[in-house]
């Protein structure tokens, strides 16, 4: 069946959008290098609601759009003994379908908390990482497991920690996410606030026990500021503590966290964000203690 859709009147109103659909990574980098002003489009679940305007709910794309959905290399998943590598264009539902036993639980739970099943069929992990707070719930979990991000442009490849705020160079895209596969005794993700609520706080934590001691202790908090929070010095203060962690140590940690979160949040409702973050931390450490009693 052939259908000619637009009437002449509509045509005049349509924006003059050019959509590029590269089929390879090298093609993408070449194209984006030449047209760095283009909008990168992955799953579109963040972009489209922003660009849909007016009575007719037309999508007001900018002049140039690069669609990543045909680049096979960006949909790959591979696992070695030490790492899980995921292409940036993998839809979140595809990643979840690999299963809880392969993906670190904290990352699984973070990805599972995003939107709803239909959104997760479209939304990609790369798009989530590149979206601003509160549209990047995966970031605290990726940060806590020390995931790294591969950024590529025509001029080369660089790797950055997931917790580092991404400042893309012109023509640069996120291509791959590398998650170290480590064993944890306890890992958890928690979100306070609904999907996409402007004040959502996400909390990710992991802990490992050895001989009655808290051997390793990581936590990361999203939504307290534009950059996801993690402080290794604070974590180190807890590492080596006898389990269960004493009330005194918890109090010291809470005041340390309070100080580190500071009052410097540039996001609105800073006080609420900080209080929620502190409460989530308290909840996490209580659960670490509980878990350690069960295990040890």
């Amino acid at each position: 069946m052939w259908l000619s859709i637009l009437k002449r009147g509509d045509m005049r109103r349509e924006s003059q959008v050019k959509v590029f659909r590269p089929k390879s990574l090298s093609g993408l980098l070449r194209l984006y290098g030449k047209n760095p002003e283009s909008l990168i489009f992955s799953g579109g679940t963040r972009i489209i609601p922003l660009l849909t305007k007016g009575k007719n709910r037309r999508i007001n794309f900018p002049e140039k759009v690069i669609y990543l959905g045909n680049i096979g290399e960006m949909f790959r998943i591979s696992r070695s003994q030490r790492f899980l590598d995921m292409g940036a264009c993998l839809p979140i539902s595809r990643i979840l379908s690999i299963g809880r036993h392969i993906i670190p639980r904290v990352v699984y739970e973070a990805l599972h908390s995003i939107g709803n099943p239909s959104i997760r069929n479209l939304a990609t992990i790369g798009g989530n990482i590149c979206s601003p707070t509160p549209f990047n719930d995966s970031l605290s979990a990726l940060n806590v497991v020390d995931a790294r991000l591969e950024l590529r442009s025509q001029s080369g490849t660089r790797w950055i920690p997931a917790g580092q705020f991404i400042k893309f160079n012109p023509g640069e895209v996120l291509t791959r996410i590398r998650i170290p596969l480590e064993e944890w005794d306890y890992q958890v993700f928690r979100k306070a606030g609904g999907n996409q609520s402007p004040t959502t706080i996400s909390f990710a934590g992991t802990a490992r026990f050895a001989k009655g001691i808290l051997e390793s202790f990581h936590f990361s908090i999203g939504g307290v500021n534009v950059k996801v929070f993690r402080n290794r010095d604070l974590e180190a203060q807890f590492e080596g503590s006898k389990l269960p962690v004493s009330v005194r140590e918890i109090e010291a940690m809470l005041s340390g966290l309070d100080e580190n979160l500071g009052s410097a949040s540039t996001l609105p409702n800073a006080r609420y964000r900080k209080e929620t973050a502190l409460r989530l931390f308290r909840w996490f450490i209580d659960n670490v203690n509980q878990k350690s009693i069960e295990i040890l």
Binding site: L3, I5, E14, S15, V17, V19, R57, I59, F61, V65
Partner: peptide, 9 residues
């Protein structure tokens, strides 16, 4: 088969 603006919903 259709022909339409690329951004049509």
């Amino acid at each position: 088969t259709i022909e339409c603006p690329p951004g049509r919903r």
